[in-house]
Write a protein that binds this DNA or RNA. Sequence first.
RNA 1: GCCACCAUAGCUCAGUUGGUUAGAGCGCCGGAUUGUGGAUCCGGAGGUCCCCCGUUCAAGCCGGGGUGGUGGUACCA
Length: 500
Amino acid sequence: MNDAETKSATVKARLPRGLADRTPTDIAATNRMMAAIREIYELYGFEAVETPFIEYTEALGKFLPDLDRPNEGVFSFQDDDDQWLSLRYDLTAPLARYVAEHFDRLPKPYRSYRAGFVFRNEKPGPGRFRQFMQFDADTVGSASVAADAEICMMAADTIEKLGIKRGDYVIKVNNRKVLDGVLEAAGLGEGQNAQKLIVLRAIDKLDRLGPEGVRLLLGAGRKDESGDFTKGAELAPAAIQRILDFTAARASDNAGTLERLRKTVGDSARGLEGVAELATMADLFGTAGYGDGRVVIDPAVVRGLEYYTGPVYEAELTFEVKDENGRPMRFGSVGGGGRYDGLVARFRGEPVPATGFSVGVSRLLAALTAIHSPIVAGEAQRGPVVVLVLDKDQVARYQGFVSALRAEGIRAELYLGSAGMNAQLKYADRRRSVCAIIQGSNEREKGEIIVKDLVLGAQVANAAKDMDRAEYLALKERQQTTVAEADLVRAVRETLARHG
RNA sequence: GCCACCAUAGCUCAGUUGGUUAGAGCGCCGGAUUGUGGAUCCGGAGGUCCCCCGUUCAAGCCGGGGUGGUGGUACCA
């Protein structure tokens, strides 16, 4: 095979878009985040459960019966019996399936948490991935808004536990029933679900498009800068104004917001029920001390998902995140949730109230990385002790040093490459090893080994940039100690102890 | 899906009105030191200039088409 053929036969190493490899640093940062979240969730009395990545598509509610295939947004494939399977796109639908399947043996209300990757076949962007990690907590079997309020407060605790300061985030709360009431008052009744959905999506864009953009979407439609036209909800001007009043109803405090909401829903019974729920939650927040800006009622929050039936919540970072070119990055919410009283009922036929919250771990990690947060910028782990190979015919002897260290529980490895001493030390440096073990013929004849302290060496090198070579070499000598082979473990222990 | 912009070494980029053998910095590998990483100096490897077609004596550069990427927008069940 000539070069050209070799080249064309080579597979290009590339990752599909929207997916990411995780480096040791990423993994360590994620683990720290997960541990923090778990600690709060368990403190609140939630217990762990885990479901698989794959579910029947119909269990996820993503099968399109009219088209006889799953929704495009989910990764799907057919089993050998032709049944459609899908990768889960969130952790809520699989939980609903789990609870329905094991209903009789679960304590009710059932409080559980779970973490894992979810998959969405959508166009990726900054903070948007096709595989990403979520960390959810849900209470199934309680219709009380106390369950919703608790989850909002836990969300606040969780975000803070992740090292985000009070004031740098906010948990926004709204209620779908209030929105329903507003739509009712605006003349949109039961049968107009398609239009309701358009309204929902339009309100969801409020932060990007502003009230005027949303007004267009609620009316005839909106043409964006690129000339693309989005069809609107075709509502009457009075109805549009009522909806915009609703989204702008947030006042300086929760009591003021509730007062405005009462006016906006008019005499819609459902709307008033929603306002009453929000009032009860506001009381709970106030009593628990979360009414200080950590949890606020914000009617502009609706969330895009259809299945929410009552309170909805969203966790937002309030500081601006910029990319390396200084441009602001749009991350969206770093968590959210709400009440979904209908999801379990799909499996059981009887209503089972449920509410839950989801932390977008991947998105949060991306945001924290972008601002160089110390939570995610922790030092990479120290590497193992590296035993150098100076004489290739002495490998067995070197391997013996490695075994002796491992037997004492000290992480150690034999250099397995083929490079010279220089490169071997570079390797140990790259591995962030604390020390390297060196034995050439001179030492071997005396039954000795050298323990070279790489951390101390780095410190000396930094402080010694402009000394002459002789001085530099003299200092270098101090970074290594020569001991008898029998003292190997003791000498390594001392070196490790010096650097924590 | 629609719109805009972009594509030259592992990375960030330069490359003249179209003109021989396409460059820099960083990184990587090696040496200076029988046998000592990170500083310094020296050397080396590394390229289908995204692909195809066209214009031309001549294309990294011009034209057309494609592919890929980025951003916005839509969709996000």
